[in-house]
Amino acid sequence: MRLSVQEAAFDAGAELNAFSASVAGAGAVVSFTGLVRDSDGSLKAMEIEHYPGMTEAAIADIAAQAQTRWSLTDVLVIHRYGRLEPGAQIMMVATASRHRIAAFESAEFLMDYLKSRAPFWKKEIGHDGATWVAAKDEDEAALGRW
């Protein structure tokens, strides 16, 4: 299991290939990559703040929960912090299992929990100033389905 909280950019394709090559016995790999979205062309950058120490512990806890709920061959989580340009890769998760259902479901579980239970905060830097991204009620509600 590789869990990384990092400022540096990563190569999602290379990470996925390395992950897939390392999961002997798995029959399915699912991955998700999150990008810095610029809906209307007004975003200059996104700044991601986090809580060093708690972030790593929270991600480890979420990944451990996924491994308890599903039979997984392996889990990968990479999440960046710091200043990111529009279109940049913010984070990725990958899950591997014998069958696809467990890989799909556990990847969604990881995403739902990383969104609302890992201590990251996003700030959008626009041309007219900066605003903190507000958590959505539906993100909290999404946890209820697990």
Binding site: M54, H79, M91, K115, R117, W121, K122, W132, A135
Partner: peptide
């Protein structure tokens, strides 16, 4: 969060070394 674990406002502080306050998280 108390000692880096999510907690609640009515939680006791006895033995706690680090208290963190923050808005709802927006990771992912």
């Amino acid at each position: 969060a108390l000692d880096q674990k999510l907690s609640s406002f009515d939680a006791p502080l006895a033995g706690v070394r680090e208290v963190a306050f923050f808005p709802p998280m927006t990771g992912g």
